[in-house]
Design a protein around this nucleic acid. Sequence first.
DNA 1: TCGAATTCCGTTTTT
DNA 2: CGGAATTCGA
Length: 717
Amino acid sequence: MQEAFLEQLTPSQRQAVCHREGPLLVLAGPGSGKTRVITHRIAALIDWGVKPYNICAITFTNKAAEEMRQRAGALGASGGAHISTFHSLCVRILRIYADAAGVHPNFSIYDESDQVRCIKEAIRNCDLDVANFPPGRILEAVSTLKNKLVDPDTFRAQAEDFFSQSLLQVYTRYQQILADRNGLDFDDLLMKAALLLEGNSAVCRELSERFKFVLIDEYQDTNHAQHRLTRALVSSHNNICAVGDPDQSIYRWRGADTRNILAFEKDWPDATVVKLEENFRSTAEVLRVADRLIARNRNRKEKVLVPVKTHTGEVRIDNYEDENAEARAVARQVEELVASGVSGSEIAVFYRVNAMSRALEEAFILHKVPYQVVRGVEFYNRKEIRDVLAYLKVIVNPADEIALQRIINTPARGIGKVTVDRAIMHAARNRMSLFDAIRNVDQIDGLSGAVKAKLAAFVQVIDGLAQNMQGKVAPFVERVFKVSGLEETLKSAGREGQDAVENIEELISTAAAYDEQTENPSLVDYLQQIALFSDADAYDASNERVALMTLHAAKGLEFENVFIIGLEHGILPHERSGENGEDLEEERRLLFVGVTRAKTNLYISYARYRTVRGQTLRTIPSEFLFELGPGLMRASVEQESRPTAEPAFPKAKPAPSPSNGQKAPQFVPGQLVRHKTFGLGRVKKFRDMGPDSVVVISFNSGQTKSLLLKCADLVRV
DNA sequence: TCGAATTCCGTTTTT
DNA sequence: CGGAATTCGA
């Protein structure tokens, strides 16, 4: 291999790229050129004469897939190689082998809100109470089972206790409801594809021989289903190249299992292991902090980050009065950076939860700093978008009752709840789909002639549209928008309607883009593709706007200047992340991911008060702050004790008057107390600071809060 | 049947 | 506190 593109690589990278055949594991720290190894390897394989058609690269997000296609293209490996996420790959497999997998190729992909509707119905069908079986919890349990490839039949043998028995009933019913509607949820995509490959040797062999080389990025975040799918996929050749970093595993809550990467050599005993420990991304200052932090994790293989960059950077911890002061200070610093010539695209702000973007957005607007919030879903969640998509789904898959119920009276056409309920009853009695029921509307009892005519008219609209659904998608979407009557309704709805129309126009242009870049565009394929898209995929690094995103969304990105806000106990680590060490370690990895996105400067901050859901609470600094390194936190505390810490932003907080000059009541750990909103709880800790005393209470609801005594209004029980 | 009002619900991270 | 689902009244 004398190719020029190999010369940019370090010896270790080159070793990985030029590995010929057999299993290969690349253990690589942040900023070590992981993804580059994959793109170069794709190019190298093609260089050796492997057909692009025989290469399958799997990334974590659609965005990453798109980027990889471009980069591989730039190396001359353009076109042909299959580069996508696990989920997209599974969609393709399930569509091609629909019969063998036991699904209809026009299946709808059900997102979370669709899932909630189905699971609620399943819970009701099983005569269980939604109060005792919260849909969210049940869905979580079902998801966990699916991620472990436990289908209802398999689960039947394991379900022993009462809860498992009930769960089994609901799970079985839920799957039946989905099957009736030709619907698959995200987890089904993985489970059905994996079980298909494991259970059908012909399909397995065919796919394994098609994809002679499989490359997987972010392997530390694969779950059990993905692992089993991978094993089946490479079973006839073991040409797997897995790339990842156990320290950057941040999706345990979604079933990701680091054992997949840690036990790689057990799964493939003849694996070649290459380690990449040089870091080309960050300054030594940033890496020292990252190193110190992640070293606290006990459940980990030790690894150091070796800096390559020689110029210096700044790492700072700041603290502010509250979230608004914090947001304004960040906006001001960003403003200064931009004024000094830094591009907005080299600045990012990370936070733990999406809700924290609010204060930032207000501050950025105030400072007139252009920004973009990189957030999950959003665009595809807008009402008007969902409406149009529901029409498309019904046309493609008339069994999709969720979509059908959404549009049957949207726009309003005089088909009310009573009518729909009658039709549903009729369909259930005669074991037919809702759409078939209204198609034969005459057979439904108790409907007036006028209502029957309205239903027949609706069926005609759908049938009429369905006749020319072939070919390009964009013109069809436009037609649906018109014929459905949605356009007319929105256009006569004033300002808001106008916004909605513009959103639909944007949808049509994304459909046009799909038509452009897809060989055989089809409505089914389009719907199944966009179901797997998130707004993080829409992040546009080419514009000059500062990026605001969650720490999770930051994965895989890098910026010269990084701000991480809200380093407070309960936020990072998040209170809902549980008390056990495993969860805490994942929160630490999350911060580690954030820290290692910074190429040069890193500004971490926390606030002394934060308003969460209308409650202003005294915060406790995150324990992670102290782990980042000695000195950093001390500097921050000195700043805090300065009398004029934030002269530009005078305190807005009205200090609640100490109760009639009385001495603040004392609490001792163990004391039982009652709070207006949180209910009963037990005092865990009491910090006596006079009127500013802080009580840490573990409430019976399971959550632990630290409350400012003078605001909390606690009653001894 | 429809739109407005009200209650009630939950509230991490996302393919 | 804010959004969604449900109920209520026209």
